[in-house]
């Protein structure tokens, strides 16, 4: 099984919108929470209340600063990172035990916790840092695409989606079949120019990232201004207020001699 299955038409994966992610970590802790009691249970924590707390997580969110070409301001891009469920991933083929495998049916890449020997080689083979070794359990852990949620008949149909996707408050995470060009995720990718991470590696990630959109700030808008005729802005405002009334009052209404402009003499 360490050999890859023949290419399937169904390629389940995530589409992550870097334009919308605010870095809130909801996907991160929701993932930890579901998986520490689900397929990957437990995701161990080490020294949780001590000086060097660490643990196993299947999804992490980075924050980068990007200096855009032709802009003097930089911008921050939050960048969630989890398994991309690659189509031709070496993390599967390097595995000596067959514990690491790609499902033929939907392309999900999984580790079988019952046969993994914890040699860590698959984590070396992953360019994306998507595999974390569970020191306490002695096996490799990775994103399961919530395989125990997306088909789970004990959950309501609307809830049969990955925990991280369901959690994401901004809607920056999308789940679906990237093998079907008509699926909403595929269309989103097409529309927004979704891209692969490190395509040069040849792993052919299924997950896609939607790039941050161009900002509509000073550099991207026609620098409009409100008209600024000569003369007193106050007088114009006054005249405007008059027009407003006249329009409502109709032509026959009294003249406006009872006011005396800015300052009464």
């Amino acid at each position: 099984m360490t050999s890859l299955p023949p290419p399937a038409s169904k390629k389940l994966g995530l589409v992550i919108d870097l334009d919308t992610c605010v870095g809130c970590q909801a996907c991160v802790t929701s993932c930890k929470e579901w998986n520490t009691q689900g397929y990957s249970a437990p995701l161990s924590d080490y020294d949780p209340y001590g000086s060097d707390p660490d643990g196993v997580w299947l999804n992490r969110v980075h924050g980068y600063e990007v200096r855009e070409q032709g802009q003097d301001q930089t911008r921050i891009v939050h960048f969630p990172r989890s398994c991309l469920h690659c189509e031709t991933p070496a993390c599967v083929t390097v595995c000596p035990t067959g514990a690491s495998y790609k499902r033929a049916e939907d392309g999900i890449v999984l580790v079988n916790p019952d046969t993994c020997i914890g040699c860590k080689l698959c984590s070396w083979a992953c360019p994306y840092g998507a595999r974390e070794y569970d020191l306490a359990q002695g096996v490799m852990k990775k994103c399961t695409l919530c395989v125990d949620r997306i088909y789970n008949e004990n959950l309501e149909p609307e809830d049969r989606q990955p925990a991280c996707v369901k959690a994401c408050p901004t809607g920056a995470r999308h789940f679906g079949d990237l093998g079907d060009p008509a699926s909403p995720v595929s269309q989103l990718v097409a529309e927004r120019g979704g891209y692969d991470l490190l395509p040069e590696m040849g792993y052919r990630p299924v997950n896609k990232y939607l790039p941050p959109r161009a900002r509509r700030d000073a550099t991207n808008t026609s620098n409009t201004e409100l008209p600024k005729p000569d003369g007193s802005a106050f007088d114009r405002l006054f005249a405007w207020a008059d027009r407003l009334l006249s329009a409502k009052a109709g032509a026959s209404k009294p003249d406006l001699t009872d006011y005396s402009g800015k300052l009464e003499g």
């Binding site: 689900g38 397929y39 495998y101 999984l110 046969t115 125990d148 997306i150 088909y151 789970n152």
Partner: peptide, 13 residues
């Protein structure tokens, strides 16, 4: 080898 059989509908609660 074949893929392990998964219970994709575990009820952990």
């Amino acid at each position: 080898m074949t893929e392990p059989v998964l219970n994709t509908s575990p009820k952990t609660w």
